[in-house]
């Protein structure tokens, strides 16, 4: 490996002898989206402020995993999903897309800020900072009897509805039919891009029934 020796020899001087600079945009180009209503955990903690979380749940998420997850609230995604959500994301890691960066979102606690909703028609809103056409949106809710103090597993999710062939805008609304539930639950969504990318986005929105 002649190449390796060469690499090792120049590596130490890479930055100090930089010959050119380029400017590159960072996060803005990557920005995609999350559920804004009912707000996802990432959206809630982002709104509270990554440096100044207010709820105990967001404070705990920042204490465990830092602030960057909430600056990048719209990137709870997997570039390699291609519909294989259940294979690539382990049980208990659904809210954070199975990513260490987003592990704070998976904290099993029953005090995540939750929106009060009722069974029947519910309008939900997705906030896409960079909308991608040709997408599918899937919505699920936790089964009756799910323990909100415990982890979220794939088998806890009951499908509500899937919208295929969607071309989302910055704020996209859908109406879904919420089944009978009591107590705290999670509304889970998957945004799967279909054309030109395997990328999928995941959200956990905490809700409570009266």
């Amino acid at each position: 490996m002649q190449a390796r020796h060469k690499v090792a020899a120049v590596a130490t001087s890479v930055i100090s002898t930089a010959s050119l600079l380029a400017i590159l945009p960072t996060s803005p180009a990557m920005a995609h989206g999350s559920m804004s209503n009912p707000p996802s955990r990432a959206y809630v903690c982002k709104a509270e402020g990554p440096e100044t979380p207010k709820s105990d749940a967001c404070k705990a998420a920042v204490a465990v995993a830092g602030t960057q997850a909430f600056y990048d609230w719209h990137e709870v995604s997997r570039l390699d999903a291609g519909g294989r959500h259940r294979q690539i994301i382990p049980n208990g890691r659904l809210c954070g897309a199975g990513r260490d960066k987003y592990r704070g979102l998976d904290l099993p606690r029953a005090d995540w800020p939750a929106k009060r909703i009722s069974p029947g028609n519910l309008t939900v809103t997705y906030h896409a900072t960079a909308p991608h056409s040709n997408s599918n949106f899937e919505f699920y809710i936790t089964r009756e009897g799910w323990n909100p103090s415990g982890p979220l597993s794939w088998s806890d999710l009951v499908p509500i509805r899937t919208f295929t062939g969607q071309n989302p805008t910055t704020f996209t609304n859908w109406t879904i039919n919420i089944p009978q539930r009591t107590g705290r639950h999670i509304l889970f969504s998957i945004w799967q891009r279909v054309v030109g990318s395997e990328e999928a986005f995941y959200t956990c929105s905490d809700v409570t029934f009266g």
Binding site: T17, S19, L21, P25, T26, P28, A29, A31, T129
Partner: peptide, 20 residues
């Protein structure tokens, strides 16, 4: 820059040092 405003991120610029 426009994206940055929309996403809540500043219009970030990263300087890239290229190897001599």
């Amino acid at each position: 820059s426009g994206h940055g405003a929309a996403s809540g991120h500043g219009p970030a610029a990263v300087s890239v040092a290229l190897p001599a």
